[in-house]
Design a protein around this nucleic acid. Structure first.
Length: 323
DNA sequence: CACATTTGACCCCG
DNA sequence: CGGGGTCAAATGTG
């Protein structure tokens, strides 16, 4: 079955969509095989005869599913899929220059309601951050370590669920330009596709952990040691064109509509993450919606990751995982 | 009262 | 021209 050939591609060969389908099938097949191997290994824990270790299989499975999700959820195809778990925050490097803070920086957030008659004519006048670098992840929860403020929600064509727009709460205080968009995945409403745009330039009180899971064995293993602990967030893709990335926050938003009930946004998420290596109560499974979870991140632009030996390494500013 | 969210208006860009 | 992103008044919450 691996042969996905002719039949699946009823369309023209160069159709990137078909390529995506092929890729998804390939990923799923690989994941299936590894899952089978893993099952076998788990049944015989002491038997290490297979060519790959349980962790390696696990890494493959995760990557396969993550890749598949990414391919399926993103119609665009640019994505790079990463798999892993983890985290990092980032040392946000060089903040791009754009973003000349549109509104008076000091006008802290209260601007709006503050009586200011706000010239209606100014509505809609904004600067699009097309040059920003974006980073997209798929997660079962929408929180992170930063404080976000929802500034909009919109129905998107071909999407069953509305997309929520959030910006860093320190946008005006510190001119932070981080923004994120949360889109519930249709095929899997329990998952959210979160796109981060721009870096956080603010000094957030909630500190962003640098790397949560680190090396060796422990982290990863402990993470998944417990039964079905699955990473909550999976990295999905990085959009090339835009620059930057970042991470963030923590939602407090609960969209009323069916958006994401952010449920859970517990601020404690990150801290949980930090302890992941030692804690074991992680998220149940991809679909569940708990809050804790490990975050898997991808780094945009320069993210580089790969499986070397037994480890998964991220080379961005500070990622690296070892399985 | 200060902030956060909702939601329709408005503008940019493909 | 229309979809998508942002603005900002109105409204909600503690």
């Amino acid at each position: 079955m691996a042969t996905v050939s002719p039949e699946s591609s009823l369309l023209s060969p160069n159709n990137s969509r078909n390529n995506n389908i092929d890729n998804v099938i390939g990923e799923l097949l690989q994941g299936y095989q590894s899952a089978s191997e893993l099952k076998f290994l788990l049944q015989k824990p002491f038997d290490c005869d297979g060519p790959l270790s349980a962790h390696q299989h696990l890494a493959i499975v995760l990557r396969s599913f993550t890749s598949s999700l990414s391919l399926l959820t993103s119609s665009s195809s640019d994505i790079e899929v990463a798999q892993n778990l983890v985290v990092s925050s980032e040392n946000e490097p060089p903040p791009p220059d754009y973003f000349l803070d549109p509104k008076s920086p000091d006008a802290s957030e209260s601007r709006g309601r503050s009586a200011a008659p706000a010239t209606k004519s100014r509505r809609g006048c904004y600067k699009r951050r097309r040059t920003e670098q974006t980073r997209t992840i798929v997660s079962s929860s929408a929180d992170d370590n930063h404080a976000w403020r929802k500034y909009g929600q919109k129905e998107i064509l071909n999407f069953k669920f509305p997309r929520s727009y959030l910006r860093c709460t320190r946008k005006y205080e510190q001119g932070c330009r981080a923004v994120k968009q949360v889109q519930r995945i249709q095929e899997n409403p329990e998952l959210y596709q979160i796109t981060y745009i721009g870096n956080h330039t603010c000094i957030d009180i909630l500190k962003t952990p640098d790397v949560v899971v680190t090396e060796s064995g422990n982290s990863w293993e402990s993470l998944f040691a417990a039964e079905s602990k699955f990473p909550k967030e999976v990295v999905t893709k990085v959009h090339p064109i835009k620059q930057e990335h970042h991470h963030n926050h923590h939602p407090k938003e609960e969209t009323t509509s069916d958006d994401f009930a952010d449920s859970s946004l517990d601020p404690s998420l990150w801290s949980d993450l930090k302890d992941l290596s030692e804690v074991d109560d992680i998220v149940p499974a991809l679909g569940s919606d708990n809050n804790n979870a490990d975050t898997v991140y991808s780094c945009s632009g320069s993210l580089d990751f790969g499986v070397v030996d037994d480890s998964v390494h991220f080379c961005s500013n500070d990622f690296h995982f070892d399985a």
